[in-house]
Each structure stands twice: as structure tokens, then as C-alpha cells.
Design a protein around this nucleic acid. Sequence first.
DNA 1: GAGCACTGC
Length: 666
Amino acid sequence: MSKFWKPGTERPRSSLIDDEEGGVLFVSASASSSGFGYSTLERQRQRLPVFKYRTAILYLVENHATTIIVGETGSGKTTQIPQFLKEAGWAEGGRNIACTQPRRLAVQSVSARVAEEMGVKLGEEVGYTIRFEDVTNSGVTMIKFLTDGVLLREMMDDPLLTKYSVIMVDEAHERSISTDILLGLLKKIQRRRPELRLIISSATIEARSMSNFFHDRKRNQGDAANDSAPSTVPAILSVEEPVGDILVFLTGQDDIDAAVQLINENALDHRSHSSGLLVLPLYSGLSRSDQDLIFAPTPKGKRKVVISTNIAETSLTLDGVVYVVDSGFSKQRFYNPITDIENLVVAPISKASARQRAGRAGRVRPGKCFRLYTEEYFMKEMSAEAIPEMQRSNLVGSVIQLKSLGIDNILGFDWPASPPPESMVRALEVLYSLGVLDEDAKLTSPTGFQVAEIPLDPMISKMILSANTYECTEEIITIAAVLSMQSIWVSARGVQKEFDEAKLRFAAAEGDHVTYLNVYKGFIQSGKSSQWCYKNYINYHAMKKVVDIREQLSKLLKRFGMSLKSCERDTQKLRKAIVAGFFANSCHLEAYSQNGMYKTIRHSQEVFIHPSSVLFRVNPKWVIYHSLVSTDKHYMRNVMAIDPDWLTEAAPHFYQRKRPNLSAPF
DNA sequence: GAGCACTGC
């Protein structure tokens, strides 16, 4: 354990200050690979705390900070930082900590746990805001969970908020939505209290300082190539230094598999030193056991080469990496509010990303980064930061988040990066049609408040609440849990036939949602067996998480006064509940369509059933989908067949207005 | 006939 300054003793000096710009002081802190916040993956795999946040906080202690505002999500920081501050001797003198937690559900559960961990009794509970008032006997006079407008205003006027305040923002995910929300809130404070000096710490800044190390090193020359896999291979093979693993950043599964193959072929053809390479792919679609290969120690005389997506940029840390090869590209999501479609495209990364990637090298010894683009491109053309997520996402979730923070004037909110007004309007439209917002754009009661409290996509939340009416909550919370996963299937390239056959054992004529119910039933009947999952090409870890999320949802429903009911075999009930949430995502098969083309009802967009769906090639006339993914085509993922009458039944306000002849035969 | 990554405990 490090030594920390106690008030009244001589203060240690810190060398943490990286940069000073315009009165904003940056303190280095990283949550993703170190510090208190582990990423989920990291946390599962290695339980080794590194104390980046501790050092940052040491700096604050040193500078007589009086207030710390900790952003932005995650329970790690909000629970452990207050605890840590106590340890650090920061407790004396009536200082103030506020932890922001945009999601109310999290706030409540976290708060209860904090109370337990700190051995204190809960203070008064106002809504879902919990306040401790000098209950710790440790001198930390207040810990506020800054979750709604009332507390935000209190915070602004708090006399304890003097001179320094420290905002720790986890920017590992460059300009994420929650970061933007937090910064927007902070701007409000700053305007009200201009004398305050705000200190922002961020992981991106850490990347910047690390990249200084590489700054004057020679970079590989070469154009930014579209086809990154082939051009990457020579770079990997040209790494001549004898020791140290290599981490390569490419864009996606296809590129990665191609590169792995090319390197292995090269090894066979030329008996070059590449035969000493142990080449491993890494992307989230891989099974856990395949992913874990990258953590296995490199065999003697071999050099590990991990070819990865962005997953290794922030969420996974490989200790032995000494060389990084950066293609300069990643897959990024862009949302078009006019068409309401999210596109997944290969795009150039930002400088901040490039630095973060470079920073993955040399964690254990000095390293090198090979960038597959020119220094001139880096200096002159590469954008400093990625386009904020706020500006390229569907905002339905964020709008409801703000509403639940007590911020009613969404359009007037002071975003650091204002999203396109069209996105706002779309989001408000959807929330209104779901019955979450009323005509004055206020949360409805109880639906709006309940939806805001469920930490899932509002459409899923609405589906869950509707299941109460249709008496099928047992089934719906299972479906909701599965839908909030990436996928419950394992990636099965090469064993496609076996995989398809396995899937057929669960396939339901109604579509993917009911199929998931069958999988869940099978999993439970097997006694939650990992063997059973392996045999059926199902991701065991995903299923365990489904069970976990399902459990949380069931607790939540109980709090709403709803009991779990099963519709047994009556799938029509649960399909109607699903439609009650997803009516806006309806499509019909184009008459005479030969290739399975659908059109969305809302925008007449051409869409197709994703090949991973059990309804692929089945093509029912009317379907609703959970999400669209757009690569070369617009694909619907998680598709269910419906009766079009259910649409008008679930959302007469939505469909009568737009399409009076909805039920017309096709 | 196809799947960048993250967050909620």
C-alpha cells in the first residue's frame, strides 16, 4: 500500500501533472486497464488492482482539494473511491465527494452497497438519491450521489465547493455519451461558480503522456491502406527485435482472420523467422476459451502476435506487448437520424485513439509502435478526437437518462458536443410513442419513471412493463436479458453446418425471441451445464449473464409491485408484449420480393433478415426486429413474426397517423 | 449467408 499524506504532516510532491491548458489541469488516471475500475472483461480475468486513481487522488490531497466529483458510470469508482479517500486520510476537514451515476437503478443498488461496505446506515432516501450526512464518523461529511437536478443545484451552491474541484472522467471510451452528459452538467456548475477551478482527469490524457515516449521514434512509412490485412503482414514480419509480443490493430473479424492466415502461410512458404510466431486472433465474437489463449504465457522461443480489433485498445490489456502495429482504422458506428439507421463502417481513427493504441506497447519494458500511415498524415490530417458518440448515436437512451436526472429542457442542454437536432427529435418521438413522455415531454407516471429505472434500452423496458398486462413476465424478462447480450451463440466459423443444426434444435417458428426462450429452458434443464452449452454452440458465459440479468430484472419488477407470471405455451401473449415495445420496428415483406427484401413501415427503408436469425430465408410477411445493423445491406437482427393487427392494437396513436391502411392485405 | 467496442452487477 502506498503512503498517503495526512493533514498536518509534510505533503509529498507528485509528478502527475501532464498538461495545463486554459486553467484546466489534467491529472492522469486510467480506469480501463488499471485503477479501481476494471472493465468487465478485465475484472473477470485478473484481479490485480493498480492504483492509478490512487495516485490521482494523492495529487488532489496534496492540493487541498475540497471537492471531488467522480464520473461517470460503473460501480467501481463510485463505491471504492469514497472508501479509498477515507484510507488516504482525506477525510478530515469537512470535504465533499460527489459520485455521479446517471442511471438510477445503479445509483440505488450501488448506494445500498456502499452503505453496507462502509458500515454506515442509510441516510434519508429521496427518490433514488441517497445522502450520507456525517454518518461515517470519519470526517467525510457528505457523500452525495449526484443524480438529479435538485442535487445538482445543491452542489453548485455548496460552500464546500471551493477553490479546487476535481472531476474524474473516464474517457477511455473517447467522448462517450455519459462523458458528454457529465461534462454538460459540469458546465452548469462552472457557470454558476466561475471562481472554481475544475480539474479534469481522463484516461485519454494518460494515453497522451505515454505517447510522448514514442514521439521521436521512427515510424514505418506507408499509405493508409483500405485493405489493411495484407499491408500489415510485412510490418509484423519486419519486427526484428528478438523479444516481446506484438499487438496488431485491425478493424474486424474478416481482416483479422485473413491476416492470421497470411502470416501462417508465410511461415510455411518461407521458413522465415515468422515460423517462430504464435499468431492469435482477438475479437469479442470469439469464445472465452479462444480469447483466453492470448493470456497464456508465450512458449519459449516463440513470439506472440495478437491480431485484434479495438477490444485491445481499452478493454483488454496484454502485459507482454512490446510492439504495436496500428493500421490506423477501426469499425465505427454512425447514426443517420433522417433514416434512423446505424451504419457500421471502417473509418480512420483519431489521434487520441492512435496514442491509446501506441500506449498499449511498452507497459513492461520500452516498446515501439509501428503506424501504417505517414507521420505527415498523423500530424496534418488525422482528427484530434473521434466524433463524439453523442453525435453518431441513437439518443433514445440518453434522452431518458437526462429526463431522469431532472433535466427537462433537453434541447437547451449545454452539451460539450451538441447532437444533431434531428436525433433529439427522433428520440423524443420514440419516447412519446412508447408512452414514456407526455405531451409536455415530461416523464409519465408510472410508465415513464419505471422505464427510466430499468437500465436497458427503453424499448426493452417498455416490453417488460407490458408483459405485466399480458401476464408473461417470466418469459419476457428472459428475452430481455438475452436481447441485452451481444449474442448467446458462439462464433462457429468452419463448423457452420454443425452450428446450423444445433440452432435448429431450438428454432421456433415465431422467430428469434421464442428461440431464445427454448435455449434458456434447455440451459436451466441441463443444470446450467457448460458441457451442454459447448455441445449446442451456446456461449456459456453469456448464458450465466442472462441468468444474472434476469434475476435483477425480477427484483426490479417486484419493486414495481409486479409479480412474475408465466404464459406457459401461449406465445401470442408474449409476442404481443414484445410488439408493445417494438412496434416502431415493424417491416413487411415486399410483395413479389425474390430476395427476401422487406421495407420498414416508418421510413420505407429496404431491409433484410440477418443470416444469423432463425427466420432467415423463412421470410414471414410481417416482422418486427430488435435492431438494425448496416454493413453492405441493412440487416434486421433478432426478428419475430407478427400479426399486423397487433401493431394498431399496441400503438394506435403511432400507426393510424402514419399509415391508415396498415391492415390492407399484401 | 454474416458478427467494431463499451455501459448496467
